[in-house]
Structure formats: structure tokens, C-alpha cells
Design a protein around this nucleic acid. Structure first.
Ligand SMILES: [Zn+2]
Ligand SMILES: [Zn+2]
Ligand SMILES: [Zn+2]
Ligand SMILES: [Zn+2]
Lengths: 131, 131
DNA sequence: CAATTGATGTAATGTCATAACATATAATGC
DNA sequence: GCATTATATGTTATGACATTACATCAATTG
């Protein structure tokens, strides 16, 4: 797996894949100090490529990054995230009706959408139970 | 209008209302230097209150703030933003079907949503014409 | 009037991201 | 082979966004 990635891309990818939730670029950097990474740009450059490839998502409301949960079918676009503020876990899902509605709005307003962000912040069931 | 706001809140609100598009907190600060504001915190504190009151929205994908376009009905609606990367203009809209679908997902996954972000980045009709 | 609450002022710090420049490596075309 | 181009990398410095900590001031309240 991930055989076509460069060294730094591979390091960042493995860090995100092994993480329990989203990580900031600087947290990724800290976890890769022992592997020789020294500067933020090394992480950001790798993240840029991984984002292009669809292997990683950026969570705008968190300024953090997460490994894609469904790396196979990342072509359907319009991915939504449910982010638990309690435990930090992220659920990734998509909804064709939501996509249809937003596409419809864009079309009727002559807006050419390039990227759509949908992020739901709140508490997951487990965290609601515990609180 | 905005009679119940404090001095700093009023300054920030007027700056955002008079702006052609979203502004960062530091840009707001720069525009209020002559009014006596000196530190970022003065702006951020005002913004926090304005966000609470629903007079201002934060655009997560931009790290910027914009005056609410419909300050009357900012109640239970799910607000979406279309942000033009060309001219910076922001359109604010809501869609009950989108809200239903996301609420449905949350309910079926026992996720208690606190705040939902929907932001569409792209190009508006005018900018598409010009390019 | 003492106590509480909320707003303000200021300095310092923390967190996230990119610019600019140098070097290295790999593929491409002649 | 060898110049050309493209891509990846390493490093330093800087820019952009946001909060912590502490002090002060004014309005409210019991
Ligand atoms: Zn994904
Ligand atoms: Zn949780
Ligand atoms: Zn609004
Ligand atoms: Zn535009």
C-alpha cells in the first residue's frame, strides 16, 4: 500500500492512518522528529500531495488533517464530517440528496463550485452517554 | 440600530457591515486603529459577542468574519455560504432539505449536533464571465 | 457600600501556514 | 552522455490567526 508515495508523504500518511483522530500539521511534525523531519514545510508539502490524491482530508473548522476513511471511492465528492468535540473522533459520510440540493443552488445562482465543506461539530453517542 | 452594543462591538459591527466581503480579525483591527483599538483581543472579544448574537458569521475555510446578511431570521436555520474565490463576495442561504438530511444522519448515528458548517468555495457568475 | 459581573486595555505567547532560497534526484529529449 | 525540465527535499525566516494572563474600570445588585 501507498507504494507510490515519497518518503515524507509515506511518513505523514502512516502517522495519520495510525492516529485515533485528526492531527494538526505541527502534531504530525512532532511525531516524525525521530524520522528526521525538522520543519513544518516538510509536513505541509506532503499533506498537499496527499490531499490532491484524496488520501487525506482537511477539517476546516479544526485546522487539522485526517486520513480518508474510504480511500477507494473518493471520487463521489461532497464529503461531510461529523466531528465529536468530546473525544475528537470523526465520522465521514456523504449524502446524494445534500449534494443535489447544493448543486441545485449553485446552478441556479451561476456559482461554479470548486470545493464544498460540510462539518458538523457536536458530541457523539458515546460522549453524550458519559456526560 | 445596534443600540445595545458596547463601543468595541459597535466599531467591529460597523466595520463588517460596511465591508464588501469577509474580513479577518487583524484586518478589522487595522481599520479601527484610528478609533483607538490596539490589540487583537479587543477585536476577538467583540467578535465573540457578535457571533453569539447572530449578527456575524465566521467562515471557517477563510478564517474570516462576515456580517450576517439576514439578521432577522438567524434562528434555527442551517446557514450555508457560497464564497467566491475570485471577488471574495459571500452569499448566504439556507436549505430545509439539506438541514433535514443532516439532522437525519445525526439522529440515526446518535450524534448531537451543536454547530454545522457548510461552505462552498468557487467562482460566482460575474467572475466566471470575466475569466 | 461591598460584592459581583461584564467590558476594557496591554503584553506576551501560542498555533497555524507560507515565502524564499538552496540542493538533490529523476525523468526527458537531443 | 549531457543539457533540460520537473519534482522532491532541506532550512531559515517570516507572516497570519488566536489565546493566556493579568490589571483596570464601570455598572449592577443585594
Ligand atoms: Zn474520505
Ligand atoms: Zn465522542
Ligand atoms: Zn446570517
Ligand atoms: Zn466573484
Amino acid at each position: 500500500m501507498t507504494a507510490d508515495l515519497t518518503r515524507n508523504q509515506n511518513l505523514v500518511m502512516k502517522t495519520l492512518s495510525g492516529a485515533e483522530g485528526p492531527l494538526s500539521a505541527y502534531t504530525i511534525l512532532d511525531r516524525l522528529r525521530d524520522d528526521g523531519l525538522r520543519a513544518p514545510l516538510q509536513v505541509y508539502r506532503a499533506l498537499d500531495k496527499l490531499l490532491e490524491m484524496g488520501l487525506v482530508h482537511r477539517l476546516e473548522s479544526l485546522n487539522a488533517f485526517v486520513a480518508c476513511a474510504h480511500p477507494h471511492c473518493h471520487e463521489q465528492e461532497l464529503i461531510a464530517f461529523a466531528i465529536c468535540d468530546g473525544c475528537g473522533k470523526v465520522e465521514e459520510f456523504s449524502d446524494d440528496v445534500v449534494k443535489e440540493r447544493l448543486d441545485g443552488w449553485a446552478t441556479s445562482h451561476r456559482f461554479r463550485a470548486a470545493k464544498t465543506t460540510i462539518e458538523i461539530r457536536g458530541d457523539c453517542g458515546g460522549c453524550t452517554d458519559r456526560s
